[in-house]
Design a protein around this nucleic acid. Structure first.
Lengths: 139, 139
DNA sequence: GTGCTCATGAGAATCATTCTCCCACGCGGA
DNA sequence: TCCGCGTGGGAGAATGATTCTCATGAGCAC
């Protein structure tokens, strides 16, 4: 979500593990922690090192192919995302997410920052709630 | 920022250390990590254990007297805050913060959530930038 | 195929945070 | 004022996520 550099790390080398991580993220649709992803890969017989998962995730984040989210318990969660700027609506119960791109918030953030003399602005917005399906299931 | 319970933990016992933490936070105006606060207390000769600082901070958060922020590197940062709902404008360089309470975002979050059938909604919004002073100093 | 790199894997290292255990102080009652 | 209970405090160990190290193995250009 940061709009910083992308110093071009050269043509990233292909590898089974990196593809596996990306493929896994492609078929999941909520935010998953690195530990989760690692466990899932192992479960399905893909022998991948934990460190490798972290490296792959970081590389993908650098490439703008993933979004990261820090949960309140300090774990980082990753999700395959469109690369354009957007925010998330996350279901607290099932982890399902919806991408939200809405000009009003962008303008709001810019205005607030300008009013206080801040420059070089960037913002983080996440909305948590219970999705319709989970709310119904719980009732 | 969560609007959960506050089960009333009984009349919290007074103590030098707890007051020291609160006093320190009162005179600082940016977000500080627990480690920072602990180091600062030690520096000024206040012998306080690290665990105690964490305990005090958690107690204060529970009481709604502090706001917590998880930075991207996984460290939690604390700040003395008004207890009403608001968001922050944080200077990336000096850590200075401005509290922002603005109905438009609240409405935006509620609307977005409603549009997707989400209920029981809560949101996190933080705006990072470089404050006027730091921008000037850097130029 | 050859060689140069960069990626990988296992485990150690690091870092923030929490837990454990035990001691000491605050506070209410005698 | 003195006593005893219970909570708060300190030190250091434990935990858990993430990163680093280093030797080995796999892409990719020629």
């Amino acid at each position: 979500m940061s709009v910083t550099e992308q110093p071009e790390g050269g043509p990233r080398r292909q590898s089974r593990q990196r593809n596996a991580v990306l493929a896994l993220l492609d078929e999941l649709d909520g935010f998953r922690s690195a530990q989760d992803l690692h466990a899932l890969l192992r479960e399905r017989g893909d022998s991948v090192g934990l460190a490798t998962v972290y490296r792959a995730l970081q590389a993908l984040v650098d490439d703008g192919q993933l979004d990261v989210l820090r949960s309140t318990d300090g774990e980082a969660a990753y999700r395959r995302c469109s690369s354009s700027h957007h925010h998330h609506l996350v279901c607290r119960s099932c982890g399902r997410t919806v991408e939200v791109a809405d000009p009003p918030v962008e303008r709001w953030a810019a205005r607030i920052a300008a009013e206080h003399g801040f420059v070089d602005v960037q913002h983080d917005v996440e909305v948590f709630g219970t999705c319709a399906a989970c709310a119904a299931a719980r009732a």
